[in-house]
């Protein structure tokens, strides 16, 4: 099974900040988006059990390769990084078009993506990619199982889960329930140095002169400010249980929550 995993390098959660231009400051340490690691783990398990290979596909500034190198060290075969100065400040609709165009240059049976990203929180790109490519879209997966020429997914629902089936190729979006991602082994880290990260420009994926990238963003940040500080909280030290309970009840009453 040939699997493409969409991975997004994101600022280390908790370190995200906006630059003076209102765009995400990319100078802070980048890591693989948390939800993407779960689907990468699922992809690696699928190819270990059924054969095949895993290709990483990412759109990021050319300098941000550490997270991709780590994903290669976990066991992916190769990486394709779409990188173009014109993509700085790209919106989700641009990202959707770029990833779909890059996928048209690759061969695959399955595309996997994480449920959402910790920096943008969007969670809308994979559905758009599936739509542009005319592929079945199966989201919010807690389990992914290959079928003969197809895929079965357990999709989390508000009430439990739905069992979905589609033919391949397909796009599947996964959650943390797919399983804990592995740590790269020393051998994996050594091996990753020799693996290919193929950098592609917009022109190389057939999007030269197309309205994608920061200059064509469909959305614009207009203002940003810091939230008012919460103010220092009240601390109750080592009360007996009844005193603790009444401190909480009193506070709920004070905040008009009871």
């Amino acid at each position: 099974m040939r699997i493409v995993v969409l991975v997004k390098p994101v600022p280390d959660p908790g370190e995200e900040r906006l630059g003076d231009d209102g765009r995400l400051d990319r100078s802070v340490t980048a890591v693989i988006n948390g939800n993407d690691e779960y689907v990468l783990e699922a992809a690696l398990k699928l190819v270990e059990a059924h054969g095949g290979e895993v290709t990483l596909l990412s759109m990021a500034p050319a300098g941000i390769t550490d997270p991709i190198r780590k994903a290669l060290a976990m066991g992916a075969t190769r990486a394709v990084l779409v990188s173009d100065p014109a993509l700085a400040g790209a919106c989700s609709w641009s990202t959707t078009q770029v990833l779909a165009a890059a996928l048209r240059t690759l061969e695959y049976d399955l595309v996997l993506a994480g449920a959402d990203t910790s920096d943008g929180g969007g969670g809308v790109v994979a559905a758009g990619v599936a739509t542009l490519l005319g592929l079945p879209y199966l989201s919010h997966a807690r389990r992914i199982e290959p079928l003969d020429g197809g895929v079965r997914v357990e999709r989390l629902s508000a009430a439990g889960h739905d069992v979905l089936e589609a033919t391949l190729p397909a796009v599947v979006v996964g959650t943390q329930l797919l399983g804990e991602p592995r740590y790269p082994s020393l051998r994996g880290i050594m091996g990753a140095r020799a693996k290919e990260i193929a950098v592609r420009t917009l022109a190389e994926i057939g999007l030269a002169d197309r309205p994608v990238g920061g200059a064509h963003a469909t959305t614009a940040l207009l203002a940003a400010r810091q939230p008012a500080p919460r103010g220092s909280g009240r601390v109750v030290r080592d009360p007996d249980p009844v005193a603790a309970a009444s401190a909480i009840v009193d506070f709920l009453v004070e905040r008009r929550a009871l």
Partner: peptide, 23 residues
């Protein structure tokens, strides 16, 4: 902005070629 809305938004964005503001 729940999972069903996100799925729908991604598809509508691609079909109508318009942007999305999330959350």
């Amino acid at each position: 902005a729940k999972p069903d809305g996100r799925d729908l938004a991604g598809m509508l964005s691609a079909l109508l070629e318009i942007g999305v503001l999330v959350n």
